[in-house]
Design a protein around this nucleic acid. Structure first.
Lengths: 220, 220
DNA sequence: CTTGACATTCGAACTAGTTAGTACATTTTA
DNA sequence: TAAAATGTACTAACTAGTTCGAATGTCAAG
């Protein structure tokens, strides 16, 4: 009979999970772990709350899945860069701008990381997948610094993790603290001109730091 | 008679409020706005939940009070600095190290700001007190840059707000992202040697940036 | 020094709304 | 026919905020 209103349901577990994750990412990143509402996520999904628990077990399970998915997405970006052929300064600038652009265009990711920090990275600790990340960036930076020192472009023997932190900090902060910073200084950080200025600023700052001699720029 | 168990109650509204705020600061900064529990705060207080609502009206009211109190505390720090007498480079270094030390020793404040950003700075917007802050830092930086350009110490005409952001970003990030960064790179950011290294690193980076010529260090 | 008005404090039970998670039935797929 | 996938309605627990009924401290005016 035409009793079944022929909604033509097709089982598509992958799509269902992906759909849930996409909506959950948005919900968690705008409300935090405790602030997010499972019902709110369910509503905006093609599917139901039932399926959230079917696939992810609990609210925390869902959160962890969201977190892992976000991290997995970056991984690919950096790997694609072909920096070994570029001269050190250019290679570094390219890497920095990639990081900058990534954070700028992935505010959800940035917010999730902020949230995870509020929870002392407790969930991240439980995830193998996430921890083994970002090792490649460090190796890249290490290589660039070594080449730069060898050919005289750079003069400072900096720790690659420290340098990565200097870069990350600025790129991340621009996005993570956009609202408080913007409110206090009445400045819209998403304006195109501002973005461009900051993009070159962080690159210039890191590069001039590496060019300046070991004892600090004071001794120049 | 000894009916009243002679608990010797003293009315001390200021102390009561301060007590509540101190406990609430801790609760909010470790659990976020939604994650914090009013009952949990009440329990760890000398007083009761009743008094929390008596003085602060609601959970949000309490949160806002906590936020304002945290901001008010920094205000004093920077004002005390006497930078006008120092040569530009030294003045800047002192300012940077003050910011660094502040964030390092006020993780609660840093976390609250992170939380506030997750909420799009919605509460901060409603607080006059907070917005009129931090103007002084910008003026200080502006003055230092101007003096440095005049006497030839610096060569780059940088925007003082941008420079403040470069400084803040690093100092803030070290604390705000301590857990995720530490987890991924297996590095303890609260080690004394690391702190010292980072302290001079951010100062060196900013100073060498200002010393490098306008066109970017590429044109050197 | 008294008095009265008002602010502060106590405490504990209570409620109304919310929310994470589940039971049970049904449909699809293979 | 069995396992995977889905839908609906429910529940058990939690939690912000309230209510009631006091007792006690403070301070200015008389």
């Amino acid at each position: 009979m035409a009793e079944r209103q022929g909604n033509g349901r097709k089982n598509d577990p992958q799509r269902t999970q992906e759909d849930i994750l996409a909506v959950a990412t948005e919900e968690f990143s705008t409300h935090g772990l405790a602030g997010a509402r499972v019902d709110a996520i369910a509503e905006r999904t093609r599917t139901s709350k039932r399926m959230i628990y079917y696939y992810f077990g609990s609210k925390e399970g869902l959160y962890l899945a969201v977190l892992e998915r976000s991290y997995r997405r970056i991984r690919t970006l950096e790997a694609d860069l072909e920096l070994a052929n570029l001269p050190p300064e250019m290679a570094l600038r390219t890497l920095i701008e990639t990081t900058f652009d990534h954070d700028e265009s992935n505010p959800d990711f940035v917010r999730l990381v902020s949230i995870e920090n509020i929870h002392h990275a407790a969930h991240m600790l439980r995830s193998e997948a996430i921890r083994e990340l970002n090792v490649s960036v460090i190796q890249m930076i290490e290589g660039i610094i070594a080449r730069g020192l060898a050919d005289g472009t750079f003069r400072r023997k900096a720790d690659p993790i420290d340098v990565h932190m200097l870069i990350s900090a600025f790129c991340f902060f621009r996005v993570s603290n956009r609202y408080t910073f913007g409110t206090i200084f009445r400045r819209d950080l998403s304006e195109k001109a501002t973005i461009e200025r900051h993009r070159s600023m962080i690159a210039d700052a890191v590069i001039s730091y590496l060019k300046s001699p070991e004892g600090g720029p004071a001794s120049t």
